[in-house]
């Protein structure tokens, strides 16, 4: 069994009296691709933010490649080699696609290599047509793809994606799946997602969140056919 690259131990996040993440112990191993699913308010995105450093957990630990990263600022987490894509496209609107991706590549590479990496990522994501267009003028799906470009440009060993397929067309989702699989060749991947079709197309293992805790963790078909999951996820009896 491959070694763990991401672990949480008894992770808890409280907002006043509300427990958004409740004592979650989670392990992701090298080369794994894991989807986190659950209904709205299940705690997935809060859990995600605790991993990325956007939130500091109330209790518990986050470990990346065995190193304690609990409470680290996002830039320190990212600097470890962790590629992060947030729920809402989070890009530099006034800059071109090319400049956006260059900024991600430059964080880990000297300028000339960053130029080459930028060209490679633009080609890989088929963004050549819009490479010189400002992000603010692009459609939602294109902005999502550029954000995935940030992740690809940094050659990460761990990728954290929050709803990467949200608001995308079928073609864009298919392209996104391909890119995620490519990333998964060299990196472990965690995806927070709602789109069940997309999850089926990319994931082998799924973790279901419910009321801030892990309800079940298994392969995708087993989870999808679980009556309890169908009940809480679809809001009706299986």
């Amino acid at each position: 069994m491959a070694e763990p690259v991401l672990e949480t131990q008894h992770l808890t996040m409280r907002f006043g009296g509300v427990v958004a993440v409740d004592n979650v112990t989670f392990t992701l191993r090298r080369g794994e691709l894991r989807c986190l699913i659950g209904p709205n308010g299940a705690g997935k995105s809060t859990f995600f933010k605790c991993l990325t450093g956007l939130l500091t957990p109330s209790e518990g630990h986050v470990l990346m490649q065995g190193e304690e990263t609990t409470g680290w600022a996002p830039h320190r987490v990212a600097a470890l080699g962790v590629g992060i894509k947030t729920q809402v496209p989070n890009v530099m609107d006034g800059l071109s696609v090319q400049e956006n991706i260059w900024l991600a590549a430059r964080r880990f590479l000297p300028s000339t290599q960053a130029d080459a990496k930028t060209r490679e990522v633009i080609e890989r994501l088929a963004l050549g047509q819009i490479a010189r267009t400002a992000l603010g003028r692009l459609a939602h799906g294109e902005r999502q793809q550029v954000e995935l470009g940030f992740v690809a440009a940094s050659d990460p060993w761990l990728v954290l994606l929050d709803e990467p397929a949200a608001g995308m067309t079928a073609g864009e989702v298919a392209r996104m799946s391909e890119v995620i699989h490519e990333l998964n060749r060299t990196a472990a991947v965690v995806i927070v997602e709602h789109d069940m079709q997309f999850i089926r197309s990319i994931a082998s293992r799924v973790t279901v969140f419910h009321q801030g805790a892990i309800l079940i963790e298994d392969d995708v078909e087993t989870v999808m056919s679980d009556p309890h999951v169908r009940n809480i996820y679809l809001g009706k009896k299986a």
Partner: peptide
């Protein structure tokens, strides 16, 4: 342009 994104890329 976007302080949070630059932080998430890894810049201090």
């Amino acid at each position: 342009e976007n302080e949070t994104r630059m932080s998430l890329i890894g810049y201090d």
